[in-house]
């Protein structure tokens, strides 16, 4: 009984983490750089939902596309400030610029909204769904559904459209993509927009049950980083798998052991994985090039 509820909660949390991690991988593939502000983008998405809900009394489902649009635009602006001026530099420079962006976002939110936790509206109404003896939070189910739709939409976009092919070509070999006429800069900006959109969606979804505060995004980046490493650096499917694994430890393992033991176990698994399978769960075998 309880095991099923824990599983649903774990999958919902994992789905939200997966959105964050997917955005992280998109930028990583397009630019080779680590976006350390990805967690704070989640926080920004949460506040976008809170603010929109304050002025537009419509259901959460209607707000969602608005939040997505807003965060997409924000992603483009973000890339113009924190990535394009640094594109010719080593990846560590972008690492720092995104850290700086994160500091700006956190403290900007603290100034604008204060430090009180805020709650975003539920997607399909709050409360719980009773299926016989099972008690399932509606929002958890909504998170799973939205994340699945967004994940599939992204898969379709990348695999089935001309835009997606151009995006993938850019990720694989920028010079080659440029040579065959892909507008590489636009593709990179689009990757940032997609990444912040996914983060924004996660922020909206998480801010209902778990609330949003100016610092609530900062721990997500570590989780995204770990998810992506577990899954295989650069692998989209791996990122989802890694995110689910983290949530399973956080919600599942910690129901048996203590939280500390669950987290320690997660790091132990992580280290073992790096030792045994340095390429991640789903990742090409790293091969030295001659």
């Amino acid at each position: 009984m309880l095991a099923l509820q824990l599983l649903v909660n774990a999958v919902a949390l994992g789905a939200a983490y997966a959105l964050v991690a997917l955005g992280f991988v998109l930028v990583l593939n397009a630019t080779g750089a680590v976006n350390f502000a990805q967690g704070d983008m989640v926080m920004a998405g949460g506040y976008a939902a809170v603010v929109l809900a304050g002025s537009l009394p419509v259901p959460g489902l209607v707000l969602l596309p608005l939040v997505l649009l807003l965060t997409a635009a924000f992603g483009v602006v973000f890339s113009l400030i924190a990535y394009f001026p640094l594109r010719a530099r080593p990846p560590a420079a972008v690492f720092i610029s995104t850290i700086a962006t994160g500091i700006i976002l956190q403290n900007g939110a603290n100034l604008l909204f204060g430090a009180e936790p805020r709650a975003a509206p539920a997607l399909l109404g709050g409360g719980i769904l009773r299926l016989g003896a099972f008690v399932l939070p509606r929002q958890s189910l909504a998170i799973i559904a939205v994340a699945a739709v967004l994940g599939l939409a992204q898969h379709w976009l990348l695999r089935r459209t001309q835009f997606g092919r151009a995006l993938r070509a850019t990720a694989q070999d920028r010079e080659m993509a440029r040579a065959v006429g892909v507008r590489v800069d636009r593709m990179i900006a689009a990757s940032f927009a997609l990444a912040t959109t996914l983060a924004g969606a996660a922020g909206f979804l998480l801010a209902n049950q778990f609330f949003v505060t100016p610092t609530s995004g900062s721990d997500l980046i570590l989780k995204a980083y770990i998810a992506v490493t577990i899954g295989g650096w650069g692998s989209l499917a791996g990122a989802v798998l890694g995110a689910m694994l983290i949530a399973l430890f956080e919600v599942g393992v910690s129901a048996v052991l203590s939280y500390e033991a669950a987290m320690a176990a997660l790091y132990a698994v992580l280290l073992a994985l790096l030792w045994l399978r340095p390429q991640g769960l789903i990742g090409e075998a790293a091969r030295a090039r001659a």
């Binding site: 720092i96 962006t101 500091i103 403290n107 100034l111």
Partner: peptide
């Protein structure tokens, strides 16, 4: 906030 901007 100013610190972040200066860093950037």
């Amino acid at each position: 906030l100013a610190y972040g901007l200066a860093l950037l």
